[in-house]
Design a protein around this nucleic acid. Structure first.
Length: 215
DNA sequence: GTACAGATCGTCT
DNA sequence: GACGATCTGTACC
């Protein structure tokens, strides 16, 4: 089947991402992320995101300045920042704001709209389709995202392994926001999290609990 | 439904 | 050497 490239399937322009992260984050809901890998193409409609600002948020990977890992966050907007965590998982951010301002949006959950078979092979433990990308590490797993995609330009066309399509933004009356907990600093009361109300693919909220030490 | 422990390793202190 | 922008299975209500 031939996919016709209609305007809603054009990548979002770089200018979209070159704005304050708290403006960009809610407008990412409803957009479509395309992951093109050798195993197949998977598309996902974003239903939950979380904003991070390296200058005000101690929870941001960029808060303590640039390192080899977070270098992409300090680069131009519209690129993917992919990191590895807990020894097992990958998570993906979209770099926002002007170059030098290390802010980004963590993609927390979405609904797979194309390539479900490929996603299912990667997410064997998912019992329902709504669990394929419910949570940031599950989302990255379902799409086959790893560190090799760190720094990929999301604004370029079908030749790129990752694209973020204009799609249709989620209806504003369905967008909800809320603060993260356990975060101090200047932006503690900012609404960092955004999600589509009532969507079954939104990951349940859990306050961050410090891990107990191993014996 | 909620609560907890264990997995597992890159990154930073 | 400590811990993490997490997930999963098991236990229990």
């Amino acid at each position: 089947m031939v996919m016709i490239e209609t305007p809603d399937r054009m990548p979002l322009p770089r200018a979209f991402f070159d704005r304050p992260v708290l403006e960009v984050a809610p407008e990412l809901l409803g957009r479509v992320l395309v992951a093109r890998t050798p195993a197949g193409t998977v598309e996902l409609l974003l239903t939950e995101v979380e904003a991070y600002d390296g200058e005000t948020d101690p929870g941001s990977h960029a808060f303590r300045g640039p390192t080899a890992r977070n270098a992409v966050m300090f680069g131009p907007p519209g690129h993917a920042y992919v990191y590895f965590t807990y020894g097992m998982w990958h998570c993906m951010n979209v770099v926002c704001g002007p170059e030098g301002r290390a802010s980004g949006v963590l993609l927390r959950a979405g609904r797979v709209t194309r390539g479900e078979e490929t996603a299912r092979k990667r997410r064997v433990s998912a019992r329902k389709d709504t669990e394929l990308a419910k949570g940031p590490a599950r989302l990255a797993t379902a799409l086959g995202i790893d560190r090799t995609l760190d720094g990929v330009d999301l604004c370029s066309g079908p030749q790129s392994p990752l694209s973020l399509l204009a799609g249709a933004p989620a209806s504003a009356d369905l967008v909800r926001s809320g603060p993260r907990t356990g975060v101090g600093g200047g932006g503690a009361h900012q609404p960092w999290r955004f999600w589509v109300d009532g969507d079954p693919t939104v990951s349940p909220y859990r306050a961050h609990a410090p891990r107990k030490r191993r014996s």
